[in-house]
Amino acid sequence: MIRNNWTKEEIEQIYHMPLLELVYRAATVHREYQDTAEVQVCTLLSIKTGGCSEDCAYCPQAARYNTGVDVKALMKTDDVLTYAKRAREAGSTRFCMGAAWREVRDNRDFDRVLDMVKGVNELGMEVCCTMGMLTESQAARLQEAGLHAYNHNLDTSEEHYGDIITTRTYDDRLNTLNNVRKAGISVCSGGIIGLGESHDDRIGMLHTLSTLPRHPESVPINALVPVAGTPLQDNQKVDVWDMVRMIATARILMPGSMVRLSAGRNEMNVTEQAFCFMAGANSIFAGEKLLTTPNPSFEEDQQMFQLLGLKPREAFKPQVLEEACAG
């Protein structure tokens, strides 16, 4: 049964299970709700890079940090559509566009993004955007243009959030998710581990996501990629088993959602990624960059899919997100 009334104590018990038992339980849930041979292949393109006014401690695109990221204006629509076509030819079924903005503004840049959304939608791909905070009216305009999903990560728990970001609040993030949901756009929201958070913080973030009135259709689990020049540049690499534990717990709590193995995958070998898929991950980003950080190539992923017997999930496939929901 898909539930929205998980308690923190219940999640804590799941999260701290012996790892192999946890993976077995998650794999069992995964088989009940998903085709375990399918993985959603997404491509993420930075359509406007750098110069962001936020102070997210992990982000190389924040204007206040000297990270070597060159500020680039919003890309031309034709160039974005060319990139999207290449991604589709390489096997991607979802195309995500990221703009380093604090919030969307009603201006000519937004009008251009709407044209991009229309163009990618016409290619038969699920189109996703991540552009910071959204108002209700902006979300409605994106939906009218054909936007399928909007990404807005919680990043961490509400308690730890202020140590990572001070330029917007946790409620600001939840409000954007609410505006996206009201517009009829699917929600993509997860977080990052390796930010100096505790296990309780990880549990808290999963609790917030899994007790939303409707679970996010997509839940990205990211491992911090430390970037020189950011406040978190010296943070230690996330242990792969921490990623497996997070993915498995997310899969049990939100069985109908896509759980995406996201940032940090470039540091994993095929065996470690296979363990993540076994634990319930069924979505990845493909392509050599995730906005500004490295990612495995399309060719490497194709070889991995062939070895593990995986296939790309078709676009717009329905999901089971509500089933006698409790709470």
Rank of each mutant, 00 (worst) to 15 (best):
V225N: 09
E217V: 11
D171P: 03
S186V: 12
D234P: 12
A183V: 06
G162H: 14
W241C: 04
V180D: 03
S157D: 03
A228D: 14
T156W: 02
T167G: 06
D242I: 07
R181C: 06
L195C: 11
M243A: 01
D201H: 12
S186M: 11
V180P: 07
T230H: 11
M205K: 07
N222R: 08
V238Q: 07
N235T: 12
I193K: 05
K182V: 08
G162C: 10
N151Q: 13
W241M: 15
I193N: 05
K182G: 06
N235S: 13
R173L: 00
D163N: 15
P220I: 11
A149P: 09
L206A: 03
H207T: 14
V225C: 05
S189P: 11
D155K: 01
T167A: 09
H207G: 08
L195A: 10
L224D: 01
M205S: 00
Y150L: 05
T208W: 03
G194R: 02
P216W: 00
T166D: 04
I164Y: 04
D155N: 06
T156Y: 06
W241Y: 15
T208A: 08
R214D: 04
I221E: 05
M243D: 01
R202M: 11
S210V: 08
L209E: 04
R173Y: 00
D234A: 14
L177T: 04
G162A: 14
P220K: 09
I192L: 07
I165T: 00
V240H: 14
L212V: 08
V227I: 10
Q236K: 13
T176F: 02
D201N: 09
R168V: 04
V227K: 00
L224E: 00
P213C: 04
I185C: 12
T169L: 04
P216R: 03
S218H: 10
T208Q: 07
S198Y: 07
Q233T: 12
S218W: 09
I165P: 02
V227L: 02
I203H: 12
R202A: 06
